[in-house]
């Protein structure tokens, strides 16, 4: 009895040590990843003068394109995205699905950072992860009777869906690889937020306003739908 308790205690300790280690590794990995992923940010400790000096020399980004860094980051992020997307498909529990979706949305934000769309990545994190996902989890919590509620589709349907989606994926890949894209050369500079804002309020003013009106309508509609029945 005593020996068992002792063994369990030591197991707990080693698990703790493992938790410490993995925590540090996770922090380091994430920090490194985020650092490398911020393509338009200037190098650390940069001053105004330094930035101009940098521009004179002709380098605009921290991670030079064409190096080994970009492919490594891309493959890591892409793997995470794909695994999370498949996790959403496979997960049976609805909350697990939501957590997989959280990972997928986060890594899509990382893809945006990699594509030099910093603002879009941040907006993806705020609106999707901080807003839409919370809303979904809220819906899950308000509408499920037990934490482990499942709705199992028949097996035949699963196989059918898998076949259809697999065929779709194959078709998309064939199209992708047979398509000829116009070549672009050289370093593509990231777009600044100011450009984005200016374009949004000039060329895209009408869609912008329409989206505002739509959001207003949706707000009223959602409040009406979810109101308390008196």
């Amino acid at each position: 009895m005593f020996a068992r308790a002792k063994a369990r205690g030591s197991g707990g300790l080693s698990a703790q040590a493992k938790a410490c280690g993995s925590f540090r590794i996770a922090i380091l990995l994430v920090l490194t990843g985020m650092v490398l992923l911020a393509p338009t940010g200037s190098v650390a400790w940069a001053t105004d003068d330094a930035v101009t000096a940098e521009q004179q020399i002709g380098v605009t980004g921290a991670a030079p394109p064409g190096g080994l860094l970009e492919p490594i980051l891309f493959y890591a992020v892409a793997m995470t995205t794909v695994i999370a997307a498949l996790g959403v498909c496979i997960a049976k529990n609805i909350v697990r699905m939501a957590v997989w979706l959280f990972i997928a949305l986060g890594s899509v934000a990382m893809l945006y950072f990699l594509l030099a769309a910093d603002f879009l990545g941040a907006i993806q994190l705020i609106v999707y992860v901080g807003g839409t996902l919370i809303l979904l989890i809220f819906g899950v919590m308000l509408t499920s009777k037990s934490p482990w509620v499942r709705f199992e589709p028949p097996k035949l349907e699963l196989i059918g869906a898998a076949v259809v989606c697999g065929a779709l994926l194959v078709a998309l890949c064939v199209v992708l690889y047979s398509a000829v894209w116009p070549e672009t050369e050289g370093v593509v500079p990231g777009v600044s937020v100011a450009d984005l804002g200016r374009r949004l309020l000039t060329t895209y003013l009408v869609p912008f306003e329409v989206a505002g009106v739509l959001l207003m309508i949706v707000m009223v509609g959602a409040a009406h739908l979810a109101r308390q029945e008196k």
């Binding site: 338009t40 001053t47 705020i126």
Partner: peptide, 25 residues
Amino acid sequence: GVTYVFRDLDIALVFILALLGIGVV
């Protein structure tokens, strides 16, 4: 400080807000 920043992002404010918002998950 002016020079004491790890990555001086154009959109630092939105970025920090986004990360603080994720904590709720």
